[in-house]
């Protein structure tokens, strides 16, 4: 058993959650619709995965109004940023270990 595999974060074993974290790691904030378009997923699908990440406290949800329309934006949290960076490191470890 290669130890690095255990360092992979279970929260990110889903491709959509991984994509959400990738986007949030380079953007100050992003709103629901932009994120949905970028990922090419349905409303319900995005909402489910965002909820998982919010429960882990990896992202913060902010609700506001743009004129009359409600607008939901997401930002990455400090612990989310650390967890994501740790996951990327672990991925690299796995790959390095396998290449030997």
């Amino acid at each position: 058993m290669i130890p690095a595999i255990e360092n992979l974060n279970k929260a990110f074993d889903n491709r959509i959650r991984l994509a959400i974290m990738s986007v949030l790691s380079v953007r100050e904030e992003i709103d629901f619709n932009d994120l949905k378009e970028m990922l090419g997923v349905t409303d319900g699908n995005l909402a489910t995965h965002v909820a998982v990440l919010e429960r882990q406290k990896y992202l913060k949800v902010k609700k506001s109004f743009a004129g009359r329309k409600p607008r939901t934006t997401y930002t990455i949290t400090e612990s989310g940023g650390k967890a994501f960076a740790g996951h990327v490191d672990a991925l690299e470890e796995v790959i390095r270990g396998r290449r030997k």
């Binding site: 990738s22 790691s25 953007r27 991925l91 790959i95 290449r99």
Partner: peptide
Amino acid sequence: LESGLRDLSAIRSMMERA
């Protein structure tokens, strides 16, 4: 190895697109 590489390249391309 393959799934790790695939994940990393997906991460990279999402970061770029965003």
